[in-house]
Design a protein around this nucleic acid. Structure first.
Lengths: 147, 147
DNA sequence: GTTCGTGCAAAAAATTTGCACCGGA
DNA sequence: TCCGGTGCAAATTTTTTGCACGAAC
């Protein structure tokens, strides 16, 4: 979304003392090229391997974990047996919703601000300060409803 | 919560043609005894093994999967490397929130109905009929805020 | 008596780790 | 040059599966 996400992330790596290796650059590129997808480690590995066949799966794991720690990526659980990840853009990162169709398995995204009212209430009632959230709605998507 | 959850679930099993084996009964008992917890398969296995040492881990997996399919249990992802489960009581099953403290890791539960307004909006805007949801709020809990 | 479920052990899948070598800063 | 990062392979961890036997209906 922002003018140059890649540069921003590179900067973040540098500032924290991490090296910008070829592998990290290629992995980042691959993720930025697939912003709309919910990639698994294996997905990313396959994409990256085309550009750099000698890369190891462990490097992908390590890089993804690093990017998760840096909050560049969000882990999402789609109940398909593996972890999936997606970019947490600065604007989107706080309001993150997934609509998961229980018929066809499709995953859409949705944003909304209504949750903010709920978070306020949680802070007041429970004394719990909400910093981020992960919301999944399960249901029937528009297409499957037609059938 | 309800008068006799165990009986209800037994009934559900029978109706769908599943046998009520000793193993299933013990696993159910163990889960009902730990309603407030978020048990992993391994947790359940350990608890059940005390009552029935000859039980196999695979049986626990198969039973938990069955109970998830029957919507007796909900899978939850607490990012600790294994799947966790909890009872989805009829009343609670639709409004399910977790407050996860990013400092101490504690998991609280919260319910609220505010999400219903949001779900209505999703159906209107996106044509997506929400059937269930899974909501996790990450933040700082009351105790950790004091420190 | 059938049929479904179980235990066991093996297999598969997902993730992590140890270590010698390599390549960014 | 130096130190963190990588590739590789092995180890762990989590989950699934095949099959003969046992138990519920």
């Amino acid at each position: 979304m922002s003018k140059n996400q890649l540069e921003e992330i590179k900067e973040q790596l540098k500032q924290k003392g991490y090296k910008l290796t070829t592998q990290r650059r290629i992995i980042l590129d691959s993720i930025l090229d697939n912003q709309d997808k919910h990639l698994s480690i294996e997905d990313i590995y396959k994409i990256v391997k085309e550009k750099m066949p000698e890369i190891g799966l462990a490097t992908v794991y390590r890089t993804i974990m690093l990017l998760s720690d840096l909050k560049v990526l969000n882990k999402i659980d789609l109940d398909d047996g593996c972890s999936r990840f997606e970019l947490s853009n600065s604007e989107e990162s706080h309001n993150h919703h997934h609509l998961i169709c229980i018929k066809c398995g499709k995953v859409e995204e949705a944003e909304d601000d209504l949750l903010e009212a709920l978070e306020e209430q949680i802070e007041n009632k429970k004394g719990f300060k909400v910093i981020n959230h992960m919301v999944k709605f399960y249901g029937i998507c528009k297409e499957c409803k037609k059938e």
